[in-house]
């Protein structure tokens, strides 16, 4: 098992390297630069800035410098948040994003699996139809619509919850962004669970369990559910990575100081280092969650062996 984990982490290094390389050059070949503002800077200032940030050097040298610094955990200074390094920015924002993302994941997983299971057990009933319609609504309405609508109803019209901000980090501040973040994923989990549950309920071994007089609860929970969870678990990795690295939309709407905003802000402002930092962050999250999910998968399914 340990060997498996080490091997997987080892194989992550080349992937990470390629991701960094592609992003680096893609970013640099895009027109414009971090200091091309609407009102052009005086040439002297520009030159100065370029020198400070070593942007006047040949591209390959910048690349080498970036790589060698990145290995030591130094992702360079941010160009738009001039007083901070990228590592600092991410370090500050990440805890908020992770906390919010974790709650959203929990909500999406529990809610989605419950709804999907109910829909599968009552296949083609009115209940099934309503749940699936709800799931369709969840996947189709973008969260930049859900966010403002939630704010309008719960914060402005009913004044039940704060409209945004992190506040003291208590639940009341988290509820609305959490729902906005979780809704599309909840819908995916519900659809996924329904599909795999229906398939699991048609499996031969479920017929065996029924033929042996096991109570319906046992048939569904012990035998069908566990098998049906396998595709759900697979989806957990990309979903968790996406939720916990923050969402630009939700963080903007609810003014949450997470890392999701940096990504879009960085890209729009050609803040090379900030974008690279977020790219590496997301890639690491994807790799780590994939590993976690693979281990989880192995625990759930004895046919999968990690040795």
């Amino acid at each position: 098992m340990i060997a498996f984990v080490l091997r997987r982490l080892g194989s992550a290094v080349p992937t990470l390297f390629i991701v960094v390389t592609i992003s680096f050059f893609l970013m640099r070949f895009a027109p414009g630069g971090p200091f091309n503002l609407e009102r052009p800077l005086p040439p002297a200032t520009m030159e100065n800035l370029m020198r400070t940030y070593q942007l006047d050097q040949p591209l390959w040298r910048q690349y080498i410098t970036y790589l060698s610094n990145a290995v030591t955990g130094d992702f360079g200074p941010s160009y738009i948040y001039k007083d901070n390094t990228v590592a600092e920015l991410i370090g500050k924002g990440l805890p908020y994003s992770i906390e919010l993302g974790f709650y959203a994941l929990l909500l999406a997983l529990v809610g989605g699996v419950t709804m999907g299971t109910i829909a599968a057990l009552r296949q083609n009933s009115v209940l099934d139809f309503s749940i699936m319609s709800l799931a369709t609504v969840g996947t189709t309405i973008p969260n930049f619509v859900v966010g403002p609508v939630l704010t309008l109803i719960f914060a402005i019209m009913l004044s039940l919850l704060p409209a945004g901000g992190w506040g003291d980090g208590s639940l009341s501040f988290l509820i609305l962004p959490m729902i906005a973040l979780a809704l599309p994923q909840l819908a995916v989990f519900a659809r996924l669970t329904r599909g795999s549950m229906i398939e699991a309920l048609h499996a031969d071994h479920i017929r065996t369990a029924r033929a042996y007089g096991l109570p319906a609860r046992v048939v569904v929970v012990t035998h069908a559910m566990r098998g049906a969870m396998l595709p759900v678990v697979s989806y957990l990795a990309p979903c968790a990575a996406a939720l916990m690295t923050g969402s630009a939309v939700v963080e903007t709407i609810f003014t949450i100081p997470g890392v999701g905003r940096y990504f879009v802000l960085g890209a729009l402002n050609r803040d090379y280092t900030l974008v690279m930092g977020t790219v590496v962050l997301i890639a690491i999250f994807v790799i780590v969650f994939n590993l976690v999910v693979d281990i989880l998968y192995g625990l759930l399914d004895p046919r999968v062996r990690h040795d």
Partner: peptide
């Protein structure tokens, strides 16, 4: 069923739950 009347099936590959 399972007590007085029991049954075995054609496909021994899939008739048992692979996870237990």
């Amino acid at each position: 069923r399972g007590a007085k009347v029991t049954m075995i099936f054609q496909e021994p590959m899939t008739s048992l739950d692979p996870l237990y």
